[in-house]
C-alpha cells in the first residue's frame, strides 16, 4: 500500500514523512489546540457571552489573524526550507520528476499534514465551549453552533490552502521566509489590517472572514465590506495558482549546488 502511494505521489509521501513525528508538527498542533485552552478559561467565567459568540469572536480575532497563519506558515516554510537547510533539494530536483510536480507535491503534503491539525483544533474548541457550557448549566448551544462551526471549517481550509501556497513560493525566494511571514502576520495582517481599510482587502484575513460570513447566515459572522463568497473563493484559488506557478519558475531558475 505504502509503495503504491509512494509511486503515485512520491513528493507528497516524502513531505508527509518529513513532518510526521517532528517538532514542527507538534508546534502546529499546539497552536491549533491553543483556542481550546481559552475555551476552558472562558468556562471559568462565561459572563453574558453565549458559547457561539465566544467561538465566533475567538475565530475572528485570534485564530484567523494570528494562530492559523503561524501554524500553516511553520509547515509551508519548512517544506522547502528544511530541504534548503540540509542541502537536499538538489537531490530532489535530480529525480525524474518535473518541477511543477515537486511544488504540487510539497503543497498537497503540507495540506495533508496541516489541515487535520487546523480543523481538529477548531472542532475541539467548539466541543469544549459547547459541552463545558452544557455542564456548567449555561446551555450547550450545540445546535446553534453547528452551522457556524461548519462555516469556520470551510473558511479555515481555504485560508490554509492560501497561506500554504503563498509561503511555499516565498520560502524559495527569501532565505528567512518564516521570519518574513511572521513580520507579515503581526504587522500587516494583525496590526495594519485591522485599521487600514485599503490594506484589509489585500490581506488573507479579509478573504478568510469573507468566506466565513458567506458560508453562514449567522449575523455574528457578517461584517461590512465583505467580499461575496464566489469572488472570495475565486480570488483564493487564483492566488494559489499564481503562487504555485511562481514557486515552479523559481525552482527552475534557482542555483541549488
Amino acid at each position: 500500500m505504502a509503495s503504491v502511494v509512494w509511486r503515485a505521489a512520491p513528493i507528497v509521501t516524502q513531505t508527509v514523512r518529513q513532518f510526521s513525528g517532528g517538532r514542527t508538527l507538534r508546534l502546529v498542533w499546539a497552536l491549533s489546540l491553543l483556542p481550546a485552552i481559552f475555551a476552558a478559561i472562558y468556562l471559568l467565567r462565561p459572563g453574558d457571552v453565549s458559547p457561539t459568540e465566544f467561538l465566533t469572536t475567538t475565530y475572528q480575532e485570534l485564530i484567523v489573524p494570528t494562530l492559523l497563519p503561524i501554524a500553516v506558515l511553520l509547515l509551508a516554510t519548512a517544506a522547502f526550507g528544511n530541504e534548503l537547510d540540509d542541502r537536499t533539494l538538489l537531490y530532489l530536483t535530480l529525480k525524474p520528476v518535473s518541477r511543477l510536480r515537486i511544488v504540487l507535491g510539497k503543497f498537497v503534503g503540507t495540506l495533508l499534514v496541516g489541515l487535520p491539525a487546523v480543523l481538529v483544533g477548531l472542532v475541539a474548541t467548539a466541543l469544549v465551549t459547547s459541552i463545558g457550557s452544557g455542564l456548567t448549566g449555561a446551555g450547550g448551544d450545540w445546535g446553534a453552533m453547528q452551522p457556524v462551526l461548519l462555516a469556520m471549517l470551510g473558511s479555515a481550509a481555504a485560508g490554509t490552502a492560501l497561506i500554504a501556497a503563498v509561503f511555499l513560493a516565498v520560502s524559495l525566494i527569501v532565505p528567512r521566509a518564516l521570519l518574513v511571514g511572521i513580520i507579515y502576520i503581526f504587522i500587516w495582517e494583525s496590526l495594519l489590517g485591522r485599521f487600514l481599510p485599503g490594506i484589509r482587502n489585500l490581506s488573507i484575513r479579509h478573504y478568510m472572514l469573507s468566506i466565513f460570513s458567506g458560508l453562514t447566515d449567522s449575523p455574528l459572522a457578517a461584517f461590512s465590506g465583505a467580499t461575496p463568497l464566489r469572488e472570495a473563493l475565486i480570488t483564493v484559488a487564483a492566488v494559489c495558482v499564481v503562487a504555485i506557478a511562481v514557486a515552479t519558475l523559481r525552482l527552475r531558475s534557482m542555483q541549488l549546488s
Partner: peptide, 22 residues
C-alpha cells in the same frame, strides 16, 4: 533548526500573553 526556535519563541509569546490575559 532555526525555524523551530522561531516558532517556539512566537508560540511562547502568544501563549503567555493570551493565557495571562484570559
Amino acid at each position: 533548526r532555526k525555524s523551530i526556535a522561531v516558532g517556539v519563541i512566537i508560540l511562547g509569546f502568544l501563549l503567555t500573553e493570551a493565557i495571562s490575559g484570559a
